[in-house]
Write a protein that binds this DNA or RNA. Sequence first.
DNA 1: ATAAACCTTGGAGTTAGGTCTAAGGTCAAA
DNA 2: TTTGACCTTAGACCTAACTCCAAGGTTTAT
Lengths: 133, 133
Amino acid sequence: MYRIGELATACEVTADTLRFYEKNGLFSPSSRSDKGYRLYTEEDARHLKFILRAKAMGFSLTEIRELLNIEASRSDWACADVKGMVEAKAAELQRKIDEMTRLRDSLQELADACCGGPESAIHCSILDTLETK
Amino acid sequence: MYRIGELATACEVTADTLRFYEKNGLFSPSSRSDKGYRLYTEEDARHLKFILRAKAMGFSLTEIRELLNIEASRSDWACADVKGMVEAKAAELQRKIDEMTRLRDSLQELADACCGGPESAIHCSILDTLETK
DNA sequence: ATAAACCTTGGAGTTAGGTCTAAGGTCAAA
DNA sequence: TTTGACCTTAGACCTAACTCCAAGGTTTAT
């Protein structure tokens, strides 16, 4: 059995984060000590690792709660449900990537047009563009 | 002279947003009516458009405040200062794009390995991977 | 003249995901 | 036995960029 600080250290998060996840219904300890300390099992640790992996994959805590529901009763769901969630997330990321790529290109264009020298910015093409485009 | 609602509508933001920008030192009306209404000039409108363009380029309001400071006294700055800001922002965006691309690839890999069928998710490879990777 | 549409202020609420504090209880080592 | 590290709770605070609300004053249209 791990206490909260041990599990937190082992998984490289803070104890506060674990309490936060608990308060938000993602993850609770299997038991408490007689004095009220949270006690986590290996099973709990795997559960937390699932959460952290999903988070690293870019899922929000709300989405992770859904994944946990599915995980908790797999037989109630179809593979298509799970695959759908993952593909929707990938598509969402793609949309963000596309938008950020456009922004980056605009910025690069702006930068490329600027002399970048030590001269005063009185005639700076970047500022001119932002002013009047 | 525009009143706040007129300028807001013209620039497709809300009056609340303009008051918010004012409270945060980005943008103030040139004058007030005798009853206290904000009155904006064409010059003010250009100023706001500068802000909105910079925002569309991905700059935060804090960064926009810096740009506005530079813009307000161009001769105190060098082109290199401005170009530096823009290039730093482009690089920051690139880092985020790279990270999101890695995430998207991981998700796509996860999805590709899943049958995606109507069968129960008991043996779903996605959930298995999240559990044990 | 009066209703609708606009404006004012200060301040609270929102979202996401934590992070920190206060006031106190517990446990292990020296 | 006392110090220090750990744990408990409730609840406040943080960032960013708004968004909404209440309570009131103004302007405009009919």
